[in-house]
Simulated assay, not measured.
Amino acid sequence: MTSNYQAQILTFLDEIGIHTISSSLEEETFLPGLKIDSGKLYYDPEKLKYPGDLLHEAGHIALMTAEEKETIIGNVKNYRSPSQDDEMGVMCWTYAALIHLGLPPEVVFHPDGYKGDSQMLIHEYTNGQYRGLPLLVWMDLTDYESFPKMKKWIRS
């Protein structure tokens, strides 16, 4: 994946109000070169393996409550019980962002991600099987009829 994707993604995130900060990340992070910290997305250009991971991690921030944005640092799953996990909603949000940006699904759903299920996820999303969509509708980010078009990108 080219750095052109990275620039396009960073511009989009800035436009929708997700703050990204280029920084040297010395500590171990959940995804190489990325760290969520209090509603901001830090990225290390030297360690970032896939530009689409920026978009996926930004999806976590987009779906956070205001309280979560103040408290979550690092791996989102460390702050939630399994019943509160929003991973499917984040993947659906990410797919909508890919469509909005005109990027191929492989930018986010790359072979090294999603526990080997990348091709299955690409197949499902490109064939209208939008796992996670009910969560986005519940958050009032979109509706069933117009998805993958979003009403707004950030949860209120």
Rank of each mutant, 00 (worst) to 15 (best):
Y5M: 06
L101P: 04
M91P: 00
E28R: 14
S23L: 13
L48M: 08
H110S: 14
H60W: 04
S3Q: 15
A62S: 11
I16T: 03
K115L: 06
G74K: 03
M150H: 01
W153K: 01
Y43I: 00
I16W: 03
K40T: 15
H56L: 03
M88D: 11
S3A: 13
M64R: 02
Y42S: 13
M1I: 15
H100D: 06
Y125L: 05
G102D: 10
P51W: 02
M88Y: 14
G17C: 11
F109V: 08
P111S: 11
L101G: 01
Y144D: 02
E46T: 12
M64A: 06
L141W: 03
I9C: 01
A62Q: 04
V107K: 00
D86S: 07
G132H: 03
R80C: 13
M88R: 10
K47C: 10
L55A: 06
Q129H: 11
V137D: 01
F12D: 11
F109N: 04
Y130T: 00
Q129I: 04
L34E: 01
L135Y: 09
W93L: 13
G113V: 05
W153Q: 02
K152P: 01
I36L: 10
T11P: 05
L135I: 03
G33C: 09
L98D: 02
D44T: 07
G113S: 13
E106S: 09
W153M: 05
R80P: 03
G52A: 11
D86R: 14
P51E: 06
D37M: 13
L63H: 06
T71G: 06
S156I: 07
Y125K: 02
P148Q: 05
E27R: 15
K49R: 15
K47W: 06
E67F: 13
E57V: 02
S24Q: 15
N78T: 14
L101N: 04
H56P: 00
N4K: 15
G59E: 00
F147E: 06
L133Y: 07
L135F: 10
S118D: 13
I99S: 04
E26F: 15
I72Y: 02
S146G: 05
I9H: 01
H123F: 07
L103F: 03
I122Q: 05
D143S: 10
L10Q: 06
